[in-house]
Amino acid sequence: MIKTLRQRRIRDRIMESLLVISTVAVLAPLLIIIFYVIINGISALNMELFTQELGSPSRAMQGRPTGLIHTILGTLVVDSLALIMAVPIGLGAGIMLSEYPEHKLNPVLRVMNDTLNGMPAVLKGLLAFVLIVKPMGTFSGIAGGVALAFVMIPIIARTTESALMGIPWSIREAGLAIGLPRWRVVISTVLPTAKIGLVTGTLIAFARAAGEAAPLLFTSFGNNYLPNHWTGFIFGPVDTLPQRLYSLAISPYSEWHSMGWAAAIILLGFVIFSYMLTRWITRNKFQNE
């Protein structure tokens, strides 16, 4: 059957508009969230947020200085601890998945990694509670870091695997053919070639974990005050942005509600900044090559 030009044009239009609708459907929730958070939070943004600790609710109600500096610092500490733990483990697992397909443990690792990835984040918090909080006898930044590491590890493993699989097999064979041991081929030729993909994957995992509140509720727990000593960020209860956002939102004080919106802006900015950093590093690398 031969279609007329007119029929084909109409068909083309229909397909195109379906694609546009999908694109809008993807972008709309993001734009609505950003718009809504900014509208509600912009008036609550001030310098005190970045210099003062929260304290008791009376501070906010009586107009005394109150802010989220302990939350911002706590988030940086907990997320960094998680990253330090998750990167070597996730990277190692990803290398195993991609480079040693013949290894006995490979299929086991693949199934367990996918299961861990699909497991609800709150269960990962529970695991960190049992492993760290119970033995230590206190909520702590390190427990929060471990919980978030459980979120990051399967993501890093998967993104590492796909980044390495993207490197042509011929690079590995070329390395082997000049008498390099297999581990050396991976470290010195495959990993550097996949660097952009590895950095991107790690930042995606980081941004994802940075937005999680559930695993932190009974690990880092939350704290209204700055610790007396910096070690308190690691070994004592610590405030983090997603969990503080939750606490402020369910509190009975309207002043704290508006601070919650401000916390949402900061968290959103933090996550968007991570993604932009990813894009920047990626673009920068491509230009060098």
């Binding site: 042509p168 011929s170 690079i171 064979e173 070329a174 390395g175 053919a177 000049i178 008498g179 030729t189 550097p192 070639t193 660097k195 090559e289």
Partner: peptide
């Protein structure tokens, strides 16, 4: 040693 059909310089 071995030389392959396609050139395989290490890209980095």
């Amino acid at each position: 040693g071995m030389v392959f059909q396609k050139p395989t310089p290490f890209p980095t």
